[in-house]
Computed example of a mutant assay.
Amino acid sequence: MGSIVAENRKSLMLFSGQGFPELAEEIGQVLGVAPTPSDSYEFANGEIFVRFKDSVRGSDAFVVQSVTEGVNRWVMETLIMVDALKRGSAKRITVVLPFYPYSRQDKKHRGREPISARLVADLLKTAGANRILTVDLHTAQIQGFFDGPVDHLFAMDILAEHIIKKFEGRPMTVVAPDSGRVRVAERWTDRLGGCPLAFIHKTRDPMKPNQVVANRVVGEVEGRVCLIVDDMIDTGGTITK
Rank of each mutant, 00 (worst) to 15 (best):
236 G>S: 09
218 V>D: 10
66 S>R: 05
65 Q>N: 04
72 N>R: 03
17 G>H: 08
93 I>M: 13
57 R>I: 00
173 T>W: 08
174 V>N: 05
170 R>Y: 12
141 Q>K: 11
234 D>Y: 08
240 T>L: 13
161 E>V: 06
185 A>W: 09
14 L>Q: 01
229 V>G: 01
24 A>E: 04
75 V>G: 05
146 F>Y: 01
80 I>F: 08
190 D>T: 10
102 Y>I: 05
46 G>H: 11
108 K>V: 14
218 V>E: 06
88 G>Y: 04
163 I>A: 10
105 Q>P: 01
205 D>N: 12
41 Y>Q: 08
176 A>W: 04
212 V>I: 14
156 M>T: 07
85 L>N: 11
26 E>L: 11
52 F>I: 02
169 G>K: 13
88 G>M: 09
73 R>T: 08
90 A>R: 12
121 A>N: 06
184 V>Q: 12
81 M>N: 06
69 E>P: 00
240 T>I: 12
217 V>K: 02
190 D>V: 13
217 V>L: 08
226 C>A: 06
97 L>R: 11
161 E>P: 00
27 I>K: 06
79 L>P: 01
127 A>I: 05
34 A>W: 05
240 T>Q: 12
71 V>N: 01
87 R>L: 02
199 F>H: 15
229 V>A: 10
43 F>M: 09
78 T>C: 13
16 S>I: 09
15 F>E: 01
54 D>G: 08
178 D>V: 01
122 D>R: 05
178 D>Q: 06
161 E>G: 15
19 G>L: 07
35 P>Q: 14
193 G>M: 10
138 H>I: 02
223 G>C: 08
166 K>G: 05
23 L>P: 05
18 Q>M: 08
107 K>Q: 12
101 P>C: 11
176 A>K: 10
101 P>S: 01
60 D>F: 07
57 R>L: 00
154 F>P: 00
97 L>Y: 04
44 A>Q: 10
62 F>N: 00
145 F>H: 06
25 E>V: 15
123 L>P: 03
74 W>P: 00
115 I>K: 05
53 K>W: 11
58 G>L: 04
19 G>C: 10
184 V>H: 01
118 R>W: 07
17 G>Q: 11
156 M>V: 01
181 R>G: 04
4 I>M: 08
213 V>M: 07
106 D>M: 02
34 A>T: 13
145 F>A: 05
164 I>Y: 13
61 A>T: 01
147 D>Y: 04
198 A>Y: 15
122 D>Y: 10
240 T>K: 15
